[in-house]
Design a protein around this nucleic acid. Structure first.
Lengths: 340, 340
DNA sequence: TTGAAAGCGTTACCAC
DNA sequence: GTGGTAACGCTTTCAA
């Protein structure tokens, strides 16, 4: 494989000149440039990114730290990132996170630009010390769907979203409204679920509906656990006529529980989710849509801009809009229904 | 940030010794090793992967070349890859491919180990010359869901899968069976669709059912296009009582067309897909399951093994099993049904 | 405008 | 066992 030295020799110039041509330096005589370009073409020369990176002190890649396995929404966000990176000369390095230790280990090893020039951290709020170390090391970080101090964030107002969902059910006439959300003590420190729950509580209070704690359940963010919780809820005397699940993944668990319990949706039970992941449209799930693709896209753009401008990114909050998507899993409660 | 030189100075030893400790060389006196380890800890030293890579001639990352946008199945395969790489010290670099040019460009820039030590190429059969260049450059390549010469492949027997799906419909009593598949002239050169179609034709022939070309449609591999094709099919006089869609994504398009045409599934129309992607279970789609996660996992493992053993991977074919998954979108044809 | 050389942080070879 | 040094392939500074 040809190196820059081979090109120089072939073109009869010095190393530096080839490098200058490569990097578009204006101070190269046109005739010389042509000769170098010809040599590059003749030898099919391609710069070695490793060597370039070592010399420049950066890796020309972008790290995405994401719980790829656990959340279906992560995939759609990732698609947005990929789209933003298209044609950007940055490689995308995927750091999957399956536990908090795992995340911390990644974060610790990324405090230099030798693995990634910038970091996009999704959904997992990084511990403050890690974040601080990163910014001190001048590794730009953008948070998507997570909060942290001193860094840009791409967010949605989960509390408002929780309100939207609950208000929709209240407007339909529901009063026995259950909530299924993430475990507040979840090891990763996700807070979206808790915010959505606050929205739920606020709307109930405003509507004068008493908050019944037996209608609120928490569990891991997965379908199966949500199914079990929903089954409990449905077995409850004076159980819910509607369920607000804190994510679409969990909502599909509720749907499964309803089917197993012989409840028709939406006639016997209304179900609303959150996210609007791909499958939600297919199953006709009413949900609060958050712009997943856009969030990844915007996050990546912010990171690229920071990298271009060479100074730390502006620690703004970028709030993306939420939207109620009415499909076919919500309806007014049927009259005179009694608990199973 | 501390370098290896800082550590050496701090421990009062030479550069080489630190490097030896780092790389677990046995020929270091234990007392010295302890001193070096202490210095490493004290300075919170971490090796620079860029420098290490330059010196060693490899990047310590694995490239995955994948049509991430276009195929839902790609995501599940990617999950398998991520799982296999867990704890392997290799970074995962994602090369999304949105056009053939795009793919070729990637492939060309990956003929050295400076961006990726090995390549996992999914679904897109790389042109033979590219493949040859790669193997000549001793960059190990593993193909998943694609064929090529001289490299290991992780495959399923798509023709057999096509047979399974069609046989299932024939066994149920269907005779007017339509097929919706990928465009045979698709720019990427996907062949899975064509193979599945061959299986379809073979079973029809064996069952003595005449092949009606107006019941076979081809289009891009997406939901919307499949929906349009299915709508045409359903408008056909003497139209199908069953549709075999070459992928689950396309099958959901058929489902949408059926709903729009007022056909009940499976009473008025049976639908079978291929892949068993995540949403298939949710919508109750009968399908031919292929082990997507496993294919990514195995492909990555083969690549890691090749990288470990330092010689080119054995060009075996690894065939993964297919399985018919009966859910609720297929049933015997209703008697005396006439075309719409 | 250009060439030579130092430096980026590591590994590996060669002495001692 | 261990230290010094060349080499990996590039960018950039300094002279010319």
């Amino acid at each position: 494989m040809a190196t820059i030295a081979d090109v120089a020799r072939h073109a009869g110039v010095g190393l530096g000149t080839v490098s200058r041509v490569l990097n578009g330096s204006p101070q190269v005589r046109d005739e010389t440039r042509q000769r170098v370009l010809a040599a590059i073409a003749a030898l099919d020369y391609r710069p070695n990114p490793l060597a370039r990176g070592l010399s420049l002190g950066r890796s020309h890649s972008l790290g995405v730290v994401v719980p790829f396995f656990t959340h279906a929404s992560a995939v759609e966000r990732l698609r947005g990132v990929v789209a933003a990176l298209e044609g950007s000369r940055y490689d995308l390095v995927l750091f999957n996170v399956s536990s908090p230790d795992h995340r911390d280990e990644h974060l610790a090893s990324l405090t230099r630009r030798d693995r990634a020039d910038g970091l996009l951290v999704m959904t997992l709020p990084p511990p403050a010390p890690d974040l601080e170390r990163l910014t001190r090391a001048r590794v730009p970080v953008v948070l998507v769907d997570a909060r942290g101090v001193g860094v840009p964030m791409v967010l949605t107002d989960d509390r408002a979203g929780g309100r939207m969902a609950t208000q929709h059910l209240v407007d339909l006439g529901h009063e026995r409204i259950a909530f299924i959300g993430d475990d507040p003590g979840n090891p990763f420190g996700f807070t979206a679920g808790a915010q959505r729950e606050q929205g739920y509580e606020a709307v109930l209070a405003e509507a004068g509906i008493p908050h019944r704690s037996e209608l609120v359940r928490h569990g891991q963010h997965d379908r199966e656990e949500a199914r079990v919780l929903a089954a409990e809820l449905l077995a409850e005397p004076d159980g819910p006529t509607a369920v607000f699940a804190s994510s679409d993944v969990q909502a599909t668990g509720v749907l499964a529980a309803a089917a197993a319990a012989g409840r028709r949706v939406p006639e016997d039970l209304s179900v609303i989710g959150f996210d609007d992941i791909e499958l939600s449209a297919y199953v006709g799930l009413t949900t609060v849509r958050q712009p997943l693709f856009d969030s990844g896209f915007l996050g990546a753009r912010l990171l690229l801009d920071a990298l271009d401008s060479n100074d730390p990114p502006v620690a703004d909050e970028h709030e993306l809009p939420l939207e109620l998507v009415e499909r076919s899993t919500t309806a007014p409660p049927s009259q005179g229904r009694t608990a199973a």
